[in-house]
Nucleic acid binder design. Structure first.
Lengths: 324, 324
DNA sequence: TTGAAAGCGCTAACAG
DNA sequence: CTGTTAGCGCTTTCAA
C-alpha cells in the first residue's frame, strides 16, 4: 500500500504538498499539482481514511439506532436517512436494538469513543438515563430522551384527528386501538390519545390493546390480532399501525368479517405495504422521507456546530383506501 | 477529552501499560491494574476508536451494499446481517444504491481506503468491472461479480422446482412469470429458468414479464402488475417475487378475479409480508437469516484470513398459503 | 508556493 | 511485569 510519503517522494515534493493537492486546499502551482497527480496515478495511491479520521478527528459516519429494520416503517425510514446522509457526505452505521441486549448503550459508547460523529436515535429505550449529560451530537427521532436532546417527529395529534375523522364518516359503535407499549416515552403516544378522545366526544366506545415492549415482527402482530378478536366480539373498527392492521385483516378474513362492511380499519404510518395486497388500506401516512431529511440535516448541522431553524414537526396526511 | 497519556500520568505508569490493562493483554500486576482502573474512572477516560483503528489498521466495520432497504427481502436481510455481524464484534455500514448514481463504486473506494474491513455486496450491479483485481475482503450475496469473489446464495433451482410443484397440483393453463431485469448476473435467474422449463415439460404455457432495472418500490411493482393484466387476458397463474405478487393481488382483486379460483399465485422470497393481509400467500421462502449468518461469518473470516468450509448454498422451503 | 516538523491518540516490539 | 521508543498515515501550522 502506497502512503502519502511514497507519493511525495515519487513526485519530488513534500507530503504536506501532496495533502494540499488531494484536498484541493491552499495554493499549489499547476506544475506541482500535475506532478503529484501523476505520482498518485502511477503508485495507485489511495489515502487511508483511518489516518485522515484521526488527524481530523471525525469519521463522517452517523449512527442510526432503531428497534428493527425488518419493519416497514423503519426500513423506509432507514432508506430515506441513508440517502439523505449520503447526499450530505455522510455514511450510515445502523444498529437494530431489538434482539440485542444492551446494544443501545454500546452504541452510545461508540459515539463517545468517536466511532461516529453523531447519532439519530429512534429506538424504544426504556432506560433513558444513558442519555443524560451526553455532549456528543444526537437527535432523537420520535422519542423523548431528555430536555437537551431535540426531537424530530410527525404531528401525531393531527394524525390522531385524521384517523378519527375517517371513522366518524361511518357508523362505528366500538373501535379497538392497538397501541405500542406505553412505557416508551414517545410523541407517537399522542395519536391514540387524541383519537380516543375524539371518539368519546362523538359517543363511540373505544378500547385499547397494548402490545408488549419491542414487539415488531409479523409474528408479534399476528398474535396480537388473534388476541384482539378473541377478546372483543362486538367490535366494528380497529385502529393501529400498518403491521397491526395487516395482521388484523388476516384474522378478520379468517373469521368471516367483511371489510369494510362488518369492520372498518385505519392504519397509522401508511408505508408502501398498505397500498398493495387485495385491499388497499385507509391510512394516515407519516411523511417519512421528509422526516428523515430533516433528522439527517439536523444531526449533521449539530455535528458541525451549525444552528438551524428547520422545523421539528411535520404533518401527516390521509391515504384513502378501501378499508374504512 | 482525556487521552491515554493523561491516564498514564494519573496512574503513575506508562501509556503502554494502560493499553495493556484496557485491552486485557500481556501480564499486568493486580496492583497496577487497579491503579490504572482508578485513573480511568477518575478521568472518565474513553479510548478513541480512530486512533485505535489507525494503529491496528482495522475498523471492525463491514459494509453492506444492497439496492434498497425499503424492500421486504433486503430489509429482513439487513436486519439479520446486522444482528449476526454485531455478535461477531462488527458494525454494519449500509449503502442503498438504488437512488444514488455511482454509489456502488464509491463504496468500493471506501473499502480500498479502509473505511471498512470488508464488504457484503448484494446490489444489482450492471458494471462488474469495478470488482476486478480487488484484493480487499468481499463476499457477494446472490450476485455473480467475478471468479475470485465467493458468493452466498439460496438454491434457486430447487426454489424454482418448489414453485412449479405448487402450480402443478392444479390445472393451470397459462402462467406469467414476473422477472427481475435479466441484465443482472445473479443465481436468482435460475428459479425462473427452472420453473418455466418444468411448466413446459408439463404442457403448461408460460410467459415472461421483465421488470426494469433496479425497480424495487411498491409503485414499480404496481405498474408492472397493471401492465401484466393489460397484456395477458387468459392467464390463470402468476409467479414472481413477494412484492410482485402482492401488487398483482391488488390489481387482480380490482379486476374481479377470485384468488385462487380464477387465478393462482406463488410468491418467491416468502418474507413476512406474505403471511399477513387478507390472504396469506403461497410462497417459496429463502432462508434469509441463515443466508445472512453465513455471509456475515464468511466475510469476517475473510477479513481475518481464516479459511472455512461453511456451505455457500442453502435450500429454500415452501410456505403453504391460500393463493395456490 | 512549498517543506519541515509537530501533532492526532493508540498499539506493539523490545529491552530491562 | 513495566517503560521506552517507534510507528500507524494523514493534516496543519509556521517559516522560509
Amino acid at each position: 500500500m502506497a502512503r502519502i510519503k511514497d507519493v511525495a517522494k515519487e513526485a519530488g515534493v513534500a507530503a504536506s504538498t501532496v495533502s494540499l493537492v488531494l484536498n484541493k486546499k491552499g495554493y499549489v502551482s499547476e506544475e506541482t499539482r500535475l506532478k503529484v497527480e501523476a505520482a498518485v496515478k502511477k503508485l495507485n495511491y489511495i489515502p487511508s481514511e483511518m489516518a485522515r479520521n484521526l488527524s481530523l478527528r471525525r469519521t463522517n459516519i452517523i449512527g442510526v439506532i432503531v428497534p428493527s429494520i425488518a419493519h416497514p416503517f423503519f426500513s423506509e425510514l432507514a432508506e430515506a436517512l441513508e440517502t439523505e446522509l449520503y447526499s450530505l457526505g455522510y455514511k450510515m452505521m445502523l444498529c437494530c436494538t431489538k434482539y440485542k441486549e444492551n446494544s443501545e448503550r454500546k452504541f452510545i459508547d461508540m459515539l463517545k469513543r468517536r466511532t461516529m460523529d453523531g447519532i439519530i436515535m429512534g429506538a424504544h429505550s426504556l432506560d433513558v438515563s444513558i442519555y443524560e449529560g451526553l455532549k456528543e451530537p444526537i437527535i432523537a427521532f420520535d422519542r423523548y430522551l431528555n430536555e437537551d436532546i431535540p426531537i424530530v417527529h410527525c404531528d401525531h395529534c393531527y394524525g390522531g384527528r385524521l384517523a378519527a375523522e375517517a371513522f366518524l364518516q361511518h357508523e362505528c359503535q366500538h373501535i379497538v386501538g392497538i397501541e405500542g407499549y406505553q412505557g416508551v416515552h414517545t410523541p407517537a403516544n399522542d395519536y391514540h390519545r387524541v383519537f380516543h378522545q375524539a371518539m368519546r366526544e362523538h359517543g363511540v366506545a373505544t378500547d385499547v390493546l397494548e402490545m408488549p415492549w419491542n414487539a415488531f415482527t409479523y409474528e408479534d402482530f399476528l398474535l396480537t390480532a388473534e388476541k384482539l378478536f378473541a377478546e372483543y366480539h362486538e367490535l366494528d373498527g380497529i385502529f393501529g399501525s400498518d403491521m397491526a392492521i395487516a395482521s388484523c385483516m388476516r384474522v378478520a378474513a379468517r373469521k368471516g368479517y367483511r371489510i369494510p362492511q362488518d369492520i372498518r380499519l385505519v392504519a397509522y404510518d401508511g408505508t408502501g405495504m398498505t397500498q398493495t395486497g387485495i385491499q388497499p388500506v385507509t391510512a394516515v401516512r407519516q411523511p417519512i422521507e421528509e422526516l428523515a431529511a430533516l433528522a439527517a440535516k439536523k444531526v449533521v448541522n449539530k455535528v458541525n456546530g451549525i444552528e438551524d431553524n428547520l422545523p421539528w414537526v411535520l404533518k401527516p396526511r390521509m391515504l384513502r383506501g378501501e378499508t374504512c
